[in-house]
C-alpha cells in the first residue's frame, strides 16, 4: 500500500498541470463504474473520508459544501475506474493521514485493531479461570440440595417462604421454580427439588 502512495506521489509530481488535480496520478487500475453501483460505491468510499471542515463527520454524512465537493471528486474518480485505495491515497496526499476515518494497518496503528481482540482473549481467559475455579464445586444443581431447600421445621419453612416471597415477589420465592419446571401448582412442596 505504501508503494501505491509513493508511486502516486511520484507520478503526481510529473503529471501535466493542465489536467487538473482530479485526474492527476496514475491511470485508473479498475473498470469504470456507473449507475447504482457508482452511487453505492461513492457512499462507501466517502464514508471512509473525514470532512476537513467538520468535526469528525465523514464526507458521506456531512452536509458541508467542502464535503459535497469531495464527494463529487470521489464519484468522478470511481466513474473513471480508480480503486478505493487509490482515491483515499489521493486525499491523504493533500490532507495527511488525518483524512482517513479508518486507521490503516501500518506503524503503531495495528494496536488500535489488535487491542480489542487482545482484550477479548484476555477477558475470556479471566472468565474461564473464574468459572473453572467455581466449576470444581461438585456436580449439577439437580443432584444437590438446592440453595433454596426449605428447613425441616414446618413453622420455620412457612416463615422462610414468606420472607422469600417478600424479597423476590415469587410464590415460594423461587423464580423458575414450580411454574417453570412443569406446571405443578406452586406451594411449599413444589419448591423442594
Amino acid at each position: 500500500m505504501r508503494a501505491v502512495i509513493t508511486l502516486a506521489l511520484a507520478l503526481a509530481s510529473v503529471a501535466p498541470a493542465s489536467s487538473g488535480p482530479a485526474t492527476s496520478g496514475p491511470p485508473p487500475s479498475g473498470p469504470p463504474l456507473s449507475g447504482q453501483a457508482l452511487d453505492a460505491r461513492t457512499e462507501s468510499v466517502a464514508s471512509l473520508l473525514r470532512c476537513p471542515v467538520c468535526q469528525g463527520l465523514s464526507v458521506a454524512d456531512s452536509p458541508a459544501t467542502m464535503a459535497r465537493n469531495m464527494k463529487a471528486e470521489v464519484r468522478e474518480k470511481l466513474a473513471a475506474g480508480y480503486q478505493q485505495e487509490e482515491i483515499l491515497a489521493g486525499f491523504e496526499r493533500s490532507y495527511g493521514e488525518f483524512v482517513r476515518l479508518e486507521p490503516t494497518l501500518h506503524g503503531v496503528n495495528w494496536l488500535v485493531w489488535a487491542g480489542p481482540i487482545a482484550g477479548l482473549l484476555i477477558g475470556a481467559l479471566v472468565v474461564g479461570a473464574v468459572l473453572r475455579r467455581t466449576g470444581r464445586a461438585p456436580a449439577a444443581a439437580e443432584e444437590l440440595p438446592s440453595r433454596h431447600t426449605l428447613p425441616d421445621d414446618p413453622r420455620l419453612a412457612v416463615a422462610v417462604l414468606r420472607v422469600r416471597e417478600l424479597a423476590y415477589g415469587w410464590p415460594g420465592g423461587i423464580e423458575g421454580g414450580p411454574g417453570a419446571r412443569g406446571g405443578e401448582s406452586g406451594g411449599p412442596a413444589g419448591s423442594r427439588s
Binding site: V53, M66, N69
Partner: peptide
Amino acid sequence: PEGKTAIAYGVFG
C-alpha cells in the same frame, strides 16, 4: 468552481 484546487491543496478553511 468545484473546490478541486482547495481539496488538492488540503485546505481546511
